[in-house]
Design a protein around this nucleic acid. Structure first.
Lengths: 217, 217
DNA sequence: CGCTGAACCTACAGTGGTGTAGCAAAGAGG
DNA sequence: CCTCTTTGCTACACCACTGTAGGTTCAGCG
């Protein structure tokens, strides 16, 4: 008669598919993103990512030096994807389009982009709660960057107007940039959370009204 | 000759002042708030709170059933303090003040309140990063509540205008409430983060311009 | 002044994550 | 078919926090 051990010697893990480091890195970033999307930032750990990726922790450590570097890399990737398209919305240096017109088009384009790639934008827009310090700092820095571009764009656009017509309304460009960005984020969030209720036309109509206060008359 | 142990038997903790449960609870909430303000939400733990309060963990457990209930209580307290003053800004039911006028005054009052009690408002405005799920959910719910009030106020105010003058401009009250709230939060943040740069007058001037687009003409 | 109960403390067992050393398997090249 | 390198796995030591059982202190009251 033989003894059955109370914990049968676990059937030994099956070997995961072998990947060169670079591919493994991508693989891990994808896994991390899935974890974040599913369970939120508070549940992200080397352990969780390894498990999601179907791999053991040492594998993760061989690709990244720890959780922070990994998240950092994930942010880099996201930034390349999201920031790039955001900046593309900025007015062309040589363009002579009217500011209000440009702003409206930029909003429209943004909403399109966001709805097309929700997985890229959701974490950016803070829908994924509890981002750790690294993440928040990065997002904040990016936000500042964009706001700077926005302020410049408004400044230039309004000056050009000034030159042609001579309506000398004083506008606080800095605050305008703040408001524009905050509004854009809120609207993007609304589009993501409830696309049916907050459709593009509805959002844009309100934006138009809003813009008029700064640029009309 | 006697042996000096390598770890000298720690001099036995001094007894903390004894407090009845209710007072201890307040004490712990204060400690928790300090921890959050100093180290952020990600560092909040029973352990950290106990230490900050100069007390051992079992004491915390005798006051609250764990971290979540404690944070919940902290939120209740904050809500009593913050939400109350926020709701007081809403227009009086019997009042017949103009909407735009009221909105501007409410903004002004909000900025005053926020600057007067930064410790109450900082966590509410999300300046303290990484709020755990409980906290975020609560803040979100409160935000929804306030937005509801806002929407009602605008609806009513605009209808009254409609009645007297007959400027029948269509306004998306729901979105207007969204924008108002988001703007208020951003401005409150700005006031808290850089009061010199973003003084009250500057912020209010921009608000006034903004409001005009929805209510003028 | 001694008792008693409320309020604290110490100590321990449990859980889940970290980071690393060293062995095992895959699979490419001879 | 054997060998060597690369990639993955197991196993361990460690840490921080959780939750609780059981002993200790102190303040108030008879």
């Amino acid at each position: 008669m033989h003894v059955t051990p109370d914990t049968p010697p676990r059937p030994k893990r099956r070997y995961a598919r072998r990947l060169p480091v670079e591919q493994r890195r991508e693989h891990l970033l994808d896994a991390a993103l899935r974890v974040i999307a599913r369970d939120g930032y508070e549940s992200v750990s080397i352990e969780a990512i390894a498990q999601e990726a179907g791999v053991t922790r040492p594998v993760v450590y061989s690709a990244y030096d720890g959780l922070e570097p990994l998240l950092h890399a994930l942010l880099d990737r996201t930034q390349r994807r999201a920031l790039a398209s955001a900046l593309r919305l900025m007015p062309q240096p040589g363009g002579d389009q009217d500011v209000a017109e440009w702003a409206l088009e930029a909003y429209a384009a943004l909403l399109d982009i966001v709805r097309k790639e929700p997985d890229v934008w959701r974490p950016v827009l803070g829908l994924t709660r509890n981002a750790p310090a690294v993440v928040r700092d990065r997002i904040d820095a990016t936000r500042d960057l964009i706001r700077g571009y926005l302020a410049d764009a408004f400044q230039e656009g309004l000056e050009r107007r000034h030159a042609s017509a001579h309506d000398s309304k004083e506008v606080d460009v800095d605050l305008l940039a703040h408001l524009t960005l905050v509004t854009a984020e809120e609207f993007a969030r609304l589009t993501l959370e409830d696309p049916d209720r907050y459709d593009k036309d509805r959002l844009l109509a309100t934006i138009e009204t809003l813009l008029s206060s700064f640029t009309d008359r």
